[in-house]
Design a protein around this nucleic acid. Sequence first.
DNA 1: GTCTATAAGAGGATAGAC
DNA 2: GTCTATCCTCTTATAGAC
Lengths: 260, 260
Amino acid sequence: MPDTVQYANFDFPRYSQTMATDSSGVAAALKALMAATADLSKAVTKDVGADVAEQVASALQSATDSMQAASRKAGRNPKADTRAEILEAAAALFTEKGFDAASLDEIAKKAGRTKGAIYAHFESKDDLMMALIREMTDPNTCDQQTLDVVEAYRDGTLAEYMDEAVCEADPGVLLSMEILAYALRRPERREEVAQVFIRHRDALKAVIAKEIPGAHQEAVLAFATIVNMGSLYAGLSPELADGAAIAELLGNAVGGKTHH
Amino acid sequence: MPDTVQYANFDFPRYSQTMATDSSGVAAALKALMAATADLSKAVTKDVGADVAEQVASALQSATDSMQAASRKAGRNPKADTRAEILEAAAALFTEKGFDAASLDEIAKKAGRTKGAIYAHFESKDDLMMALIREMTDPNTCDQQTLDVVEAYRDGTLAEYMDEAVCEADPGVLLSMEILAYALRRPERREEVAQVFIRHRDALKAVIAKEIPGAHQEAVLAFATIVNMGSLYAGLSPELADGAAIAELLGNAVGGKTHH
DNA sequence: GTCTATAAGAGGATAGAC
DNA sequence: GTCTATCCTCTTATAGAC
């Protein structure tokens, strides 16, 4: 398959493939159109007069603008990729260095962007943090982790699981602590952050009810407190908390039937 | 009692009372001597020739210097008061805003000093933090808190105690979390900080063994994790953890005889 | 939407007077 | 030992080109 296509007198790069396989739909098509515009401009400038080039460029720009408007109307978010990558980088750096010590330059760099891109998507550093907290719902991050813990408990392999998971301090737990501290120090944020924590708590509660029949009334709280704090202590020193100790403690606190 | 004393032709402010009642001994005397020197200098300048004043000042300066040397030789720390006040202010601000967000200017101001005073006692901000961690042993702060918790548990009043203690997020717990995060993010500090935590853990363990006969093997870990994390959750929202929930959970985890 | 450049200010640390 | 003044770097945020 040729990677260009003839149109009028110009060779057009073929973007249709990119468009077809790209998952973000309109946004990706928009991006492709803008790239095509740039390439076309170059070709025009080389082969014809500047006045013609200007007309063509202007027409394509209009097309781009209306596409953008249509995209927004359709409720799509053409910045989804960049936004997601920034959030991911922010999560990593807030975990690694803490909210205050992580700079926006570092975050942008890790996301393969610059600070300007961050401010195109978020109003401020605090807004970035709050967006991160709100979208913590992603089952690929925190939630999957806690599911694993519940399963390990049910299967009687929690001790091994913890020893393996927290040889280095569990990143998810550290981020969760960072968020907790962030909210506790900003009374005006507490309510909103609390709702996110409550939502997570209730999801975990449902899993426990399903996976651990006969679990104690406060089993959720036991998981949240013992596993989280235990991970941090274990990260500081195995002498302070090891997998066996955490598993034994959790066993007393949670009760219910396990499979070992 | 007059507040000045005649010596030669000058009126000397009477510092002996200050010296006698001041608890830091040599250091206070030294301070008083320096103040006296300053006052004497003024008087001298006013009443006699500048050359005489210079001689007197020089002599007193020598006296001050040798006193200072003697003080150091005796193993005294003349900066004890300032140092303690700086540490106290640092603890408060590290709790309130976090290590990174708390500035040395703020800390100095809260301690009634300036940044220069901090650098006279600590090499860097990190050195200040480490000193704070090492000297966390003070029974008036963290330790007293955990003792109270154990007693409340033993007396069956933990639920009420927690509800009262964590209406605002427990400052001691937040500081402890800040220190934990600080150490986890600085691998080279982990070992030393871990030793401090272990020391505290063992002290608490002894108290539990004494106060709660028949407590479970991992009772210490239960107190450390459930009460600490529970306090933070409770500080975020009572819906997330309240005194009754924490007390009930701790009861299952710890076991042993209580008095209610 | 993203980049570069820059403004504006804060923070840790040091120097020197007293 | 403490203070004042200063240095230098880093940081958040904005402006303007593309």
